[in-house]
Design a binder for these strands. Structure first.
Length: 679
DNA sequence: TTAGGGTTAG
């Protein structure tokens, strides 16, 4: 869908770039830290001057840092100074780290601050709860709540909202709702943030309908929804591919006088792009800029990623330049998307240069960045390079995840080291992180190595691991089973797959259809073909050819003719295989005149007979003892540089004396072309 | 000085 509109994209993108390049009046100045390694210039040391110390203190108090290293340098300075910053100042500092999503760091520094003798207050404990919740450690958050109660502090709605969110982050939406109800029963009035946490939890859990109901109820309960409420729902609708509903919700919020912000626009733009609605997405982007809402790092990341996935890396790089010109600092996501784009378009050297650049700018590659690189290396067959990158990744403290290991498995399978892939797979099982992708890769590996029993065994064990085979799993195994000569099991699997609402791909269907035709199960094949014609997955020429050939082989010529005419109705053109099947079918039934007519007419349809087609028609005439017509066609065939196949030769030998002129001609031709043995 | 919504890999 996205590809279909590609031709209109560049012009529209140029106009967007021009829009963005215009000054908005409120453009932020670029962060100085972006171009310098601020960490090294600010490491505390014994020679630091009194002026330096004042600078660090000021930096700490004004929380003017953009990187972890920079923040830590400030922190390490102030904790050695007298007097120590106040609890309020430490809390401001920790809050800044929370905004940078540095939750682990906050937990660790909180302990340090406490050890310095700075006692907690309700805000610092609230910050700590928030960090535990974001780290999916809601239970730790509750133990901090215990501490709050022990200290005699009164927990407020902010703390309860944070804990409700903690359940939501872990996907425990029922517990989130229970806790919300307990809180209301305890006399606490939820505010818009509390509702938003529940709405977002419901959305993330796939319960968008319930979230929309809650949106309506909020008003009745005296709490007006805000931009964040609508944005959470709009984003969920987009991710559920419900673009119309998302746009409807967008107008609904504006009609209520609730203004969309950069997050709302980014969600919608992202969703519309993903759904192939480029024009609408670009219109919104322009509208957003017109409304003086500046695209931020998330917006630019969405644009860069979409451009990269469209293969428009050059445009993505331009967008990256504009982003920097506008003072929006790229992050690990920006770089990962660009690296991915460069890898996709085979610009391997450029992607490594970009990796170097990001490290130089103090942006650490994460598990996504490494996985992109590793996957590309494996797909290029550079196994040892990929293994080296995994080592580097581990050395840098980035833990490989199931995606990384799946790439490793796929790499081993690609170079026929299936047993090594199995070892990795077993490791994933032991660690409880094996997923459907892991199974798909290994099943495919076993199928390609002709170890179909192991492939089937893996497929059968998936439910025990709590995994449901997906379309790829089924398609892979069906093809494997068929190639391994197990058509019945493959057919059964195919039926189960359709029964469970999974969509087989066209290759799987053609494999199954071909098998059914070869078994002579034409009724089943025809039924499947008819279902396909009515479905979204329209039969292609290969599918038509399989069915027409099957019908012709069993003499169902009327059915074959009907399907042949439908091929044109569906905007497809027959090829030489289609004609050959029909000619063969007609000849077999003794309808030589008709077969010959089709043979001559196919040229008019822009399709020339090939070697096989000539042999088929010649065999038809020979089988019906029409030697003059056969010899006329043999002459024509030889003149065109084709030769007789084994069956034609066999028929000729049985029909004609050994020194026949036609045979001699064929023999001479075949000796010249070292083709078929005519003796 | 404490809470909520948007971005990257197979």
């Amino acid at each position: 869908m996205i590809m279909a509109h590609r031709s209109i994209l560049p012009t529209t993108w140029r106009s967007f770039h021009l829009q963005l390049q215009r000054p908005l009046g409120t453009i932020q100045s670029p962060h100085l830290f972006f171009f310098t390694n601020s960490f090294h210039s600010s490491i505390p040391n014994s020679t630091a001057t009194h002026q330096d110390a004042r600078l660090f203190r000021r930096k700490f108090i004004s929380v003017s840092f953009t990187h972890l290293d920079d923040a830590l340098a400030s922190f390490n300075h102030v904790i050695h100074m007298h007097p120590l910053p106040s609890r309020v100042q430490f809390n401001r500092f920790l809050s800044a780290l929370v905004r940078m999503k540095l939750y682990h760091t906050v937990v660790s520094l909180s302990k340090t601050i406490e050890l310095l003798g700075i006692s907690h207050n309700v805000y610092s404990l609230s910050i700590l709860i928030n960090c535990f919740c974001h780290l999916r450690l809601v239970e730790f958050g509750f133990s901090v709540l215990g501490k709050i109660l022990k200290f005699g502090f009164e927990p407020d709605i902010v703390i309860f909202t944070t804990l409700i969110n903690g359940f939501g982050v872990k996907g425990k939406i029922d517990q989130a709702v229970d806790f919300f109800d307990d809180m209301v029963a305890g006399g606490y009035q939820p505010d818009v943030c509390t509702y938003n946490v529940i709405v977002n939890g419901l959305c993330k859990f796939g319960k968008i309908d319930v979230a929309i109901e809650l949106l309506k109820e909020m008003v009745e309960r005296g709490c007006e929804p805000d931009t964040a409420t609508y944005t959470a729902i709009i984003d969920a609708l987009c991710k559920d591919k419900l673009a119309v509903e998302a746009l409807d919700m967008f107008s609904q919020m504006r009609n209520k006088g609730i203004s969309p912000n950069v997050i709302t626009y980014t969600s919608l733009i992202h969703g519309l792009f993903k759904l192939g609605k480029q024009n609408q997405a670009l219109a919104l982007l322009n509208e957003m800029v017109r409304n003086k809402i500046s695209p931020d790092v998330y917006t630019f990341n969405v644009l860069i990623d979409i451009l990269c996935k469209e293969g428009m890396v050059f445009e993505a790089q331009n967008t990256f330049k504009i982003m920097i010109q506008r003072g929006v600092e790229p992050n690990v996501v920006t770089y990962s998307s660009l690296i991915d784009g460069l890898c996709i378009s085979d610009q391997w050297k450029e992607s490594l240069a970009l990796l170097k650049e990001m490290v130089g700018r103090n942006i650490s590659p994460n598990v996504f960045t490494f996985s992109i690189l590793i996957d590309t290396l494996f797909k290029k067959g550079l196994v040892s390079n990929a293994q080296n990158v995994i080592k580097i990744m581990i050395q840098r403290g980035v833990e490989p995840c199931v995606v990384t290991y799946n790439s490793l498995m796929d790499g081993y399978c690609l170079c026929n080291q299936i047993d090594k892939a199995r070892k990795v797979f077993n490791l994933l099982v032991t660690n409880g992180i094996v997923d459907v992708f892991s199974y798909n890769i290994l099943i495919n590996g076993y199928c390609n190595s002709k170890r179909i029993d192991e492939a089937k065994q893996l497929f059968d064990e998936m439910p025990q691991k709590g995994l449901v085979p997906d379309t790829v799993t089924c398609n892979t195994l069906i093809k494997g089973l068929w190639q391994a000569g197990r058509p019945w099991i493959a057919q059964e699997l195919f039926k189960n797959m359709c029964f469970h609402g999974q969509q087989p791909d066209i290759i799987t269907i053609s494999t199954v259809l071909d098998g059914l035709c070869k078994q002579g199960d034409l009724d089943e094949a025809l039924a499947l073909f008819k279902v396909m014609e009515k479905s979204w997955l329209k039969p292609d020429r290969m599918i038509y050819n399989i069915v027409i050939d099957g019908m012709c082989k069993v003499g169902k010529l009327n059915d074959a003719k009907e399907i042949f005419s439908r091929l044109f109705e569906n905007g497809l053109q027959p090829d030489v295989y289609t004609y050959t099947s029909i000619i063969k079918g007609l000849s077999k039934e003794g309808l030589l005149a008709e077969a010959y007519k089709v043979f001559r007419e196919m040229k008019e349809g822009g399709c020339l007979p090939d070697n096989c087609c000539y042999n088929v028609i010649i065999q038809g005439f020979l089988r019906h003892k029409d030697v003059p017509k056969a010899s006329e066609l043999i002459d024509e065939m030889v003149d065109k540089g084709f030769s007789a196949d084994a069956t034609t030769t066999e028929l000729l030998v049985s029909l004609l004396p050994n020194d026949n002129l036609i045979l001699r001609k064929l023999r001479n031709h075949c000796e010249g072309s070292k083709g078929v043995d005519v003796e």
